[in-house]
Structure formats: structure tokens, C-alpha cells
Write a protein that binds this DNA or RNA. Sequence first.
DNA 1: CCAAAAGTGTTCGAATTACACCCATGA
DNA 2: TCATGGGTGTAATTCGAACACTTTTGG
Lengths: 233, 233
Amino acid sequence: MKSYHDRARHLVAVDCVIFGYDLLEKEIKLLLFKRIIEPAKGQWSLTGGFVEEDESLGAAASRILRKLTGLESIYMKQSYCYGDTGRDPGDRVISIAYWALISIRDIDPEIVENTGVNWRSLNRLPELIFDHAEMVKKALADLQAEVKIAPVGFELLPEKFTLVHLQDLYEAIYQRQIDRRNFRKKILSMGILEKLDEKETVTSKKGAFYYRFNKDRIEHLKEDGFYFNLEVN
Amino acid sequence: MKSYHDRARHLVAVDCVIFGYDLLEKEIKLLLFKRIIEPAKGQWSLTGGFVEEDESLGAAASRILRKLTGLESIYMKQSYCYGDTGRDPGDRVISIAYWALISIRDIDPEIVENTGVNWRSLNRLPELIFDHAEMVKKALADLQAEVKIAPVGFELLPEKFTLVHLQDLYEAIYQRQIDRRNFRKKILSMGILEKLDEKETVTSKKGAFYYRFNKDRIEHLKEDGFYFNLEVN
DNA sequence: CCAAAAGTGTTCGAATTACACCCATGA
DNA sequence: TCATGGGTGTAATTCGAACACTTTTGG
């Protein structure tokens, strides 16, 4: 049954701001690609695609992410809907931006190779088409806000990680330095980490203890309306 | 020039979560209306409409607000885009929710009368169609977040107001009690209010001093990245 | 033995919370 | 004179910020 006759119909797209973290380089990167269709063919762009007939917005975003990385992201959130009439010179397109946070190391490199996408450091982005720079800016703000209220970053680290790894990650997201002592004090006081007996000895001679997340504890805290704030110092 | 051929085209709507404040009743209300078209004709709904061919999303939201209230709202913000395929049983409609905050007293009562809309207390809402209840919930959260970082509420009060009025407003938005002394201490310490010699003597025998906003000072603080937080006590 | 990274506590100031009594006035 | 709502200050606590030295060990 179709109600609503004679109404304007619009092209609706989803654009994905895919943040990746590589714990070796300690930097947040963005997955960009060179447009293969007109207009603006050959220029740098976010990854996106049109929303199909019977496809929800989230499904469209997941489809695009999966195609480019082979991943289903745990952290994929809607950011904002961009609908100015002139934003895409090709036609009037309404675009919903999503952001996702993934671990670069998890990606199938072959897929990345084949799809012509490219990881670019957040600090040294090329010029982007249309309003994509604005999308990135807003998505980063969303990510930074999200990180304060949910243990987002934890999804990006391997099962075992050191407190140094964890701090590096938060520094990459916030894009600033954090005091080591204050960071440890705060994160440990939350009681969501379990210290293991094992040490990571690759990056230092002394070695750093591995930790592991206590997922039950996190779930428990969330239920109690726990406010996860790591914005120290 | 039209690029992008053979792509699905969608109905795109805007739904407005219009929050109103009445300083007499000290309550936030929502502007609802009874649907006059199928499906769900006769049921309560947010106010909305389809986005037209060459109309930006914000323009569509403003158009709807203006039609129903005669107002241009200073505070109208995009909330979230709802696009599940089955959300509207009439057809697949992608809807962008906006919220606005207006002063009920400013509205032309004749327009409200003619359009069949209705102010309903936020605490005693009727059942709403589709996913509109979810829209309201999210928009309220957005409003509460916005209020912490911008002097939103000020737009809702008349030129002259008492500190009691201002506190009532914030209590209505946060939906909780605030300690009188702490509230005053905080708001006065910001230096954005000017005390007048005049008193409001309607609600009390003693009378309460009127205040007025110092808009220049607010602009000045905003430029310095001022974080407007009134979440006291 | 020394370079390099991990690990650890304390102090200070600011901000937030809790809390109770006096004031002015019209009826 | 009394009921009603307006107005005020202080002490206790919590939270975040700043800050420097010791430990371990492989080379």
C-alpha cells in the first residue's frame, strides 16, 4: 500500500567517516577513496553510497563498511544529516553521515587494495569533495563526545593490552597529551580492568603488564547509568 | 545536469519536536496534532511534512514551524534521522527530526486554533504514532545537552524576568529540582545578568527583582569558548 | 652501567554540594 | 500579625591538575 502521492522523491545517500586506529603508529586515520564517478571524479572523498529501496539507513552504512573493510563495526553511529540543495553538484542528494571506529590491523588488506581506498592521517588530510570536510569535523566531535560516555576505545584493542597502549589510544582520539599518573589512577579506579601476570616486552626492557577488560563489570556499570569519563588532565 | 541515474528515490520528511515553555505553568509542553491523512488518521503525531524538491532540510523544518506557530525559532536544531524501512506503514519514508524551543506565550493563538494543534504536557503525553515517541525522547536528551553548553533558555523568557522565572525554566528542562542558592550563585557569577531596579510583584508580596540579559557579554564569552553549564546541585 | 620505558603518591586549588534562617509586604 | 515567597553565606567534600623520582632490565 502506498499512501502519500505526488510527493517529491529524493536521492538519499550514506557517507561513512571511518576512523581507524593502528596501535603501532598511535594515530587515528581516516579511510578515504578516490571517486570513480562524475562529478568530481578522481578527487578524495568519504566512502558512501545510495540508500536502496528497502534498506534501512544503518543497513546501508553497514553494507558500505563491509564492502570496504570486510568488517562489521561494533561502533557505528549516525552523525548528522546533510541536505542543503547545492551540496552535491551532480544532483540534489540528501546524505546521512555515519561514523565508525575500527582497528586497522583487523582489516583484510586485500580488500583495501582492491577497492582503491586509502588510510590517511587525520592530521594530514587531503582536500575533500563537497561538504565532506565538514562531515569529518562533526564526526570527530561526535566520537570525542561518545568516548566520554562509553568505553568505545576498548573495542579497538586486542584481548590483552598494556596501559600504555590504552593511553596512546585515548591520546589519539582526544588529540592531546594525557598525564600518565592521572590516567592510570582514573582508569584503574573504575575497576573494569584485570591485571594479568604476563608482560609485554617488545617495546621496553622492563616490560609492561598486560591487562584485560572485565566485560561483565562494564555491563553492570552501564546498567547503573555509569558515566564513563576518561577526560583527565 | 543530473548525474546518478537509476537510483532509488525516497520520500523524505521532516518532523518537528516543538518544545514550548509557559512561565505560568512552569512546564515544558509539546506541540502535537491529530493526523488528518491516512494512515493513522486521527491519532496524535508530531508536526511534520515532506521535504520539497529544492528545499533544504532546515528550510523545510522552518516552514513547518512557521505554518503552525507563526514563528521563526532561534533555537531549531537537527536531532536525528530515522530511516527504518517499516517505520511508516503508509510508505517508506525517511524522516529527519528537528527540535525547536519556543515561548508558548509568543504564539499566535489563532494559528494554533486553525491548524488543530495542541499543547500537551511532556509528562502526560498521549500515545504517538510510528516512532514519534522515540523522536521525542531523543530530542529531549538533545535539548538537555544543548542547554548545558549554550544559554538556550534565555530565548524563552521575556525581556525582563526574575531569577525565580529563570530557575523554574531550568527545572522544567532538566525535570528536577535545583537548589535556589546554588543556582543563583552560579548564574550570577557568570556576569551575564543585569539587575534592574524594578520588581515583579504579581506572585509575591515582597516582590522579586527583575533581571535582564547582557547579550554583548554572552557574545563575548562565547567567542572565548565559554562553557555554559548550569547543571548545579 | 646506562639508556629507555614502566610504574607510582601527594599536594593544591577550584568547584560542587548540602544546608537554614531572615526579610519584606499585603491582606 | 502572620502567611507567603524572596533572598542570602558558609563549611565540608569531592574532583581534577600539577608535578618528579624510582624501578627494571637488555644491551
